[in-house]
Amino acid sequence: MHYFYLAQFDIEAQAGPKALFEIFGIPVNDTTVIGYAITIGLIIFARIVTSNLQVIPGRLQSAVEILLEAIVNTTEGMMSGGGRKLLPFIGTIALFIGISNIIGILPLVKNPTADLNMTLAFGLSVFVFSNAYAIKVKGFWPYLKGFAEPMIFILPINILGELAKPISHSFRLFGNVFGGSVLIALAAYFVPGILPVPLMAWFDIFIGLVQALIFTMLAIAYISIASE
């Protein structure tokens, strides 16, 4: 239709998962494929780095050690005693989302985090992890009683606030990455060649890394608040 000018450009390529092929009747999305590719790449990278550990680290080993120490120190600063304990969970989130956010700079690769299914999965896993960790640290009845603090009337508000956490957590990441990719697509439609390059640098590298940091820090904050 001529009067819906914007709708003509290929927004479908940006929005939502796109089924690439089917395995036993189950459609496999591009999000899943790129997510698994990132996972396998991270596993191979970890194997390469840890295959030849030295007491006096080389260049690659020191870089990875600096990254891991940064994650441990950030966690330790927000929640004392949790740095090494939470490293598998927090480090997975930080590495995977960081790489997912900047991988969109490659041509023909969509950010896996520009799909609400992916970010909602991460938000829900942080939600489940924080509550399970709180039950493990505090015990079941003190955990339930924590919802009725400081008064019993606050109970529904506390429960609603707890349920709103994964939604705001995942929508923040999704909105930033998806909005960036839509703006890049719009710029590539109107000013092809010139404008998209600095926009890609801004949205995919800077905003992507900042949002990965925010997501990780909020995950630590949710876990530390729940287990207090």
Partner: peptide, 12 residues
């Protein structure tokens, strides 16, 4: 980046 999220929700 945290305070930006309300604007991002509206944008979405």
């Amino acid at each position: 980046a945290v305070s930006e999220s309300t604007g991002i929700y509206a944008f979405v």
